[in-house]
C-alpha cells in the first residue's frame, strides 16, 4: 500500500518556489530518510504531508486522502519537530496522559520507560526544558504514539551525541516490534543511515533521487570537475542527479556499477574529482 503519493507537487512561499514539481511515492512500513540542504524544501514537504500546509498546485495523498484539514490523516499521523509546544499548565506527565487520550495506539508503558530512562521529572513543564531535552521529550511522544505514519523533522536538534544514539536505538527497537512508516529528516546522515531502508534527496524543492540506501551506498559515486569531460563520460549512465556549478564546473552523481574501471581511470587522469557515496551526500546536504 502507498502511504504517501505526491504528484507534481508545487508550494509557493510568496514568489519563492519551496517545492517545484515534486513527485514521490512512499510505501508502507519503511523507514525513509529525507535529506537535503537547509531550505531545500524538506520541512515544507513534511508539513504538507502532515496536513499543516496547503499545496499550491499538484496532488498529495496520505493514506489515499488529501492531508490538509483531514481528521483521519491527523489521527494516523504524528509530526515531531523542535517547534512543538505543549500547554504550560500541564506537567510532562500530564502531557503524556493527554497524548495517550488522543492517540488510539498510544503505548504508555513505553512512554514511561523512556521518560524514566532519560531522567525526566514528572513535575517539569515542557516550556522550561532545554532545547535538547525538549527534543528528547518530543521524540518520546513521537515514538509512543505508534502512529501508522510517524514523521520526525530534524528530531535530534540540541541532543547530545549519546542521547541521539539512544533515540535511534529506541526508535528502531520500537519499529521492529511495531512496523510502521517512518520519515526521518536529519543533517546527520551518517548517524541515521544504518536505520534507513530508503533515502530521498531533495534539492531546490525537487526530488533528486529516491533509492534503497544499500543501493546508494554500494553504487552511488559523485563526480565533480570539468563539465565537458563528465558529460562525455556519463552520457550513457543512469544519472541520479546533476547540478551545474559556476562556469564549466559541473557536478553529478552516477551509478558506480555502470562505470568500468577504465572509465574511472580516465576520470582520474582528466582531473575529475571522485567521491564515495558518503562525501557525495555530504556535498549535497
Amino acid at each position: 500500500m502507498n502511504v504517501i503519493e505526491c504528484h507534481a507537487l508545487i508550494k509557493n512561499h510568496g514568489s519563492r518556489k519551496a517545492l517545484n514539481n515534486l513527485s514521490l511515492t512512499i510505501t508502507e512500513n519503511k523507514i525513509t530518510g529525507l535529506i537535503g540542504r537547509n531550505g531545500a524544501g524538506k520541512t515544507t514537504l513534511l508539513k504538507i504531508i502532515a496536513g499543516y500546509w496547503r499545496e499550491t498546485a499538484g496532488e498529495v495523498k496520505v493514506f489515499s486522502n488529501k492531508p490538509f484539514n483531514n481528521l483521519s490523516v491527523s489521527a494516523n499521523t504524528i509530526f515531531i519537530d523542535d517547534q512543538m509546544n505543549f500547554p504550560t499548565a500541564l506537567t510532562l506527565k500530564q502531557v503524556l496522559e493527554e497524548a495517550g487520550n488522543f492517540y488510539p495506539n498510544w503505548d504508555m508503558e513505553l512512554a514511561l520507560k523512556l521518560f524514566n530512562y532519560f531522567s525526566f521529572d514528572s513535575r517539569q513543564v515542557h516550556n522550561n526544558l532545554s532545547k535538547g531535552n525538549k527534543s528528547t521529550f518530543n521524540m518520546i511522544v513521537g515514538i509512543s504514539a505508534h502512529c501508522p505514519l510517524t514523521i520526525f523533522d530534524e528530531p535530534t536538534t540540541g541532543m547530545d551525541a549519546a542521547v541521539r544514539k539512544d533515540f535511534y536505538r529506541a526508535l528502531l527497537k520500537d519499529y521492529l516490534a511495531h512496523p510502521r512508516s517512518i520519515i526521518l529528516s536529519s543533517h546527520y546522515l551518517d548517524e541515521i543511515e544504518d536505520l534507513l531502508e530508503d533515502v530521498i534527496l531533495i534539492e531546490n524543492g525537487e526530488k533528486y533521487f529516491h533509492t534503497p540506501i544499500e543501493e546508494l551506498k554500494e553504487t552511488a559515486i559523485g563526480l565533480s570537475g570539468d563539465k565537458e569531460i563528465i558529460t562525455g563520460l556519463v552520457a550513457d549512465q543512469d544519472v541520479l542527479y546533476r547540478t551545474n556549478g559556476e562556469g564549466n564546473h559541473s557536478y553529478s552523481v552516477v551509478l558506480k556499477k555502470d562505470l568500468s574501471s577504465k572509465q574511472i581511470e580516465k576520470l582520474r587522469d582528466s582531473g575529475v574529482e571522485y567521491h564515495q557515496y558518503h562525501q557525495t551526500i555530504c556535498a549535497c546536504t
Partner: peptide, 10 residues
C-alpha cells in the same frame, strides 16, 4: 497547540 495532537480546523 492543537495541531500537536489529533485535530482539524473544525
Amino acid at each position: 497547540d492543537d495541531f500537536v495532537l489529533i485535530t482539524n480546523r473544525l
